[in-house]
Design a protein around this nucleic acid. Structure first.
Lengths: 255, 255
DNA sequence: CGAGGTCTTGAAGACGATCAACAAACGTGG
DNA sequence: CCACGTTTGTTGATCGTCTTCAAGACCTCG
């Protein structure tokens, strides 16, 4: 069974927690017990989505934000004629619509790529956090800023990297992000995403996506076994992509 | 003389203020007198840059953030071999590196496209704002989130729009943003940006940029007189670009 | 076992890149 | 104010990456 596609129904009997978010934040700065408790208490309830379900829709004004606990999701926008661009891949620990808290209106759609489990965090609780926990507020702010930093790298890739370089860079990024939350061991991870979806993320056709992946395999950089990706030549992949992980802001420091 | 290239040395004898930022924020929500004063007081000093000077550099850890008061600037990232992507155009009222306040490290460079005047806002003052003005903090947060929303639209354009559609969309966006700060009258504005820079923003070559602009002019959508752009057919331009200004989050509402 | 989705392959064509050259505009110094 | 060099804008020709269309193989799941 595919671990990322099938969430554990009741991992060791405990209720879902904001654990992957805390892990992500603690990668960047230290959290006090109070701050962790404030995050835990902010979760009103959890919810599950099936694959391909829309989790948040463009134009909505949600009264809560959605924290991804298990599964993969993607933000995307489409043009009227159907051309679609994926704007981000999201993994556990990512707030998929935290920006709708200050912004109020959701300006794009988020879809579940696999079955997903999420925590719903009411905006009034987030408001309370901004009133009482300035440091934690900055950390939440940071998590939206890292989304922005990744977006900038994606734009650089879309504009100036070849399709092959772009794909290489995406794989580098995903490995690093998955490692933070413990979903990648060594240099391999599960990527439960179709080639069509990968193409929508790079802004290329499905056919070309297929050829790009073949090229990466032919060069001995990566191996695919089902949805299990193994990076065989990390150095080579980084060199091809001109990958510099600075943009992920993984350093631990006072923020 | 070109108004945007040549900042007024001493506009009616007053010192520079954060006025364009306040104008930008008040477009989205109401500011109290205290909040406006807190912003004004946060400005340590102003500074000027010549055209083509780097205002913030990748890898720096600035102790202040930079608010653009006059002139145009651009964020960009480059690959090792020199391919460059412009990630955003910035106009007065934009915080060009507010994200370096929570993030600490600047992950890309910002360059002055014209002579620029900026206000320097020490991070310790911003910290004080996050401690004492939660609502104002959310508004600052919003300003980084709008940058992110624009970035998502740019990524959609880079990935899925043709070069011509992309250019049309950029012109639509710039007109709307310039109107907010009073730098566009009717449907025309000064665009002190070379075709090479426009190409770096769209991720296309300079030659192709030139041909795209010719196409827009041939279709009667826009007219150029030096750096003065006039949009002759707003509806047509929006239709070509599939432009929807929702992503600019211009609505006034409690945040 | 059949059906629908996903992956793979080939061929033709479009969009945009690159190279090379020239024209126009601009700023600077004489 | 003109002369001159540099930057910016324009044009044509050729080339390459990626798209589109079409079809077939594979694979997973009911």
């Amino acid at each position: 069974m595919d671990e990322t596609r099938q969430p554990h129904p009741e991992r060791d009997g405990m209720a879902a927690t904001v654990h992957p978010l805390i892990r992500k934040l603690e990668q960047r700065d230290t959290l006090s017990q109070n701050e962790k408790a404030a995050l835990e208490n902010a979760v009103a309830r959890t919810k599950e989505f099936k694959a391909d379900e829309e989790m948040v829709r463009e134009g909505e004004e949600p009264s809560f934000s959605t924290l991804l606990l298990e599964g993969w999701a993607a933000r995307h926008k489409s043009l009227r004629d159907g051309r679609r661009q994926i704007l981000a891949f999201h993994i556990p620990g990512d707030f998929i619509d935290l920006h709708s808290f200050p912004l109020k209106v959701q300006d794009h759609t988020v879809v579940a790529l696999t079955p997903c489990k999420v925590a719903l965090v009411p905006h009034e609780d987030l408001n309370r956090i901004t009133e009482n926990f300035p440091h934690l507020t900055r950390l939440l702010w940071i998590s939206t800023l890292i989304d922005g930093a990744i977006l900038r790298e994606w734009l650089l890739s879309a504009g100036r990297r070849s399709a092959t370089e772009h794909m290489a860079g995406l794989l580098c990024e995903l490995l690093m992000r998955l490692k933070v939350i413990g979903l990648a061991q060594d240099n391999s991870f599960r990527l439960p995403v179709t080639q069509s979806e990968l193409g929508d993320a790079l802004g290329i056709s499905t056919v070309h996506t297929n050829r790009v992946l073949q090229e990466l395999r032919a060069k001995g950089l990566v191996t695919w076994k089902g949805d299990l990706v193994e990076i065989n030549d990390w150095t080579g992949l980084c060199a091809l992509a001109d990958f510099d992980l600075m943009y992920l802001h993984l350093e631990h420091r006072p923020r």
